[in-house]
């Protein structure tokens, strides 16, 4: 079971890297790939932020993930410093979580 999972996973991760120079992307595909980072990273975190308990949308100031994320986006726009953005996000998150009693 684990060996098969390893082979399948390694194939998805490394196949293109291993092919290296032999892979040529058509222009349209290359253009599409330039949107992959912003779309994937955003799509991974929005459910964590907007539906933290896994049920419905929690569009409320009582949702620490949401409040902290708004603060982090604002910090990123204002400061454009990665570490500071993470710091602001985490600070607001934990302050809010504690402040909201949980």
């Amino acid at each position: 079971m684990i060996l098969g999972m390893f082979l399948v996973t390694y194939a998805t991760k490394a196949l293109l890297f291993i092919l290296g120079e032999r892979v040529r992307f058509p222009k349209l595909l290359a253009e599409g790939l330039s949107f992959v980072p912003v779309t994937v990273l955003t799509a991974i975190i929005t459910p964590m932020i907007f539906t933290p308990s896994g049920a419905g949308l929690e569009l409320s100031f009582r949702n620490p993930q949401l409040v902290a994320s708004i603060a982090a986006v604002a910090a990123s726009l204002a400061l454009n410093r990665q570490l500071a953005t993470i710091g602001v996000g985490l600070l607001v998150y934990f302050a809010w979580k504690i402040g909201m009693g949980g």
Partner: peptide, 28 residues
């Protein structure tokens, strides 16, 4: 939440162009 905060720090500056912002909003 550290992961979400880091992703925000990486994605936000990359959304400077309108197509990238739009793509991120739609995907999100």
């Amino acid at each position: 939440y550290a992961m979400a905060a880091t992703f925000i720090a990486i994605v936000t500056p990359q959304c400077a162009s309108r197509p990238h912002l739009g793509a991120a909003l739609v995907a999100g």
